[in-house]
Amino acid sequence: MKTEKVDDASLETWTVEEAAQAFDRNEIVLIDVRTPQEYMFEHIEGALLMPLAFFKGDKLPDQVEKRIVFHCGSGVRSERVARAAIAAGVKKIAHMEGGFAAWKGAKKPYIGTNMATGAPQAVMPE
């Protein structure tokens, strides 16, 4: 993981592997900052949705029990949200490098949409 000091705060950039392992161990909360439409089409199972357009950094819970790691489609929006969280007073925050595209590229499981039925379905890439 890469760490950048931003004034008196820390912005961490996690790899997909780091995020996936910590998520599997229930050590982090993964927050998807994409649009509701993107999330409904495909998302990481168990990730929460907090779209960039509606983000309020001062409403984030503390990170005593679990760390917060943001993700988006490519890593651009999640970094922007992480920096907004720092501007709102959060002292340590993280985002996932490469976003959901990197998650899929690393062949991690996710929930997708069955194009024949429109229903959500688990996708387990090989």
Rank of each mutant, 00 (worst) to 15 (best):
Q37S: 11
Q37T: 13
Q37V: 13
E38T: 03
E38V: 04
Y39I: 05
Y39M: 05
M40W: 11
M40A: 15
F41K: 07
F41D: 06
F41Y: 15
E42I: 08
H43C: 04
H43M: 04
H43S: 04
H43R: 15
I44A: 09
I44Y: 15
I44G: 08
I44V: 15
I44Q: 09
E45S: 14
G46W: 15
G46E: 11
G46K: 11
G46P: 14
A47L: 08
A47H: 12
A47N: 10
L48F: 12
L49G: 08
L49N: 09
L49M: 07
M50I: 07
M50D: 10
P51G: 10
P51H: 11
P51V: 05
L52N: 07
A53R: 13
A53D: 15
A53S: 15
F54P: 12
F54K: 11
F54L: 12
F54A: 07
F55K: 06
F55L: 07
K56E: 15
D58W: 13
D58L: 05
D58I: 05
D58V: 05
K59G: 06
K59I: 05
K59R: 14
L60Q: 05
L60D: 05
L60T: 06
P61G: 12
P61W: 10
D62I: 00
D62F: 04
D62K: 06
Q63L: 00
V64H: 07
V64C: 03
E65K: 05
E65P: 02
K66L: 10
K66S: 08
R67D: 12
I68H: 02
V69F: 03
V69K: 03
F70S: 03
H71F: 12
C72M: 13
C72A: 11
C72G: 14
C72Y: 14
C72E: 11
G73A: 09
G73C: 09
S74P: 15
S74V: 11
S74W: 13
S74N: 13
G75R: 08
G75V: 08
G75M: 11
V76N: 13
V76R: 13
R77Y: 08
S78E: 03
S78H: 02
S78G: 04
S78Q: 03
E79F: 00
E79R: 10
E79G: 05
R80G: 07
R80M: 13
R80E: 15
V81I: 07
V81H: 06
V81Q: 05
V81W: 03
A82E: 02
R83A: 02
R83D: 00
I86D: 00
I86E: 01
A87D: 09
A87F: 02
A87C: 01
A87G: 02
A87Y: 01
A88M: 14
A88E: 08
A88G: 11
A88S: 15
G89C: 06
G89S: 05
G89H: 10
G89I: 07
G89E: 06
V90F: 00
V90D: 02
K91M: 01
K91F: 01
K91H: 00
K92V: 01
K92N: 04
K92H: 09
I93S: 00
I93N: 00
I93D: 01
I93Q: 00
A94E: 01
A94S: 10
H95S: 04
H95G: 00
M96K: 08
M96E: 09
M96Y: 14
M96N: 13
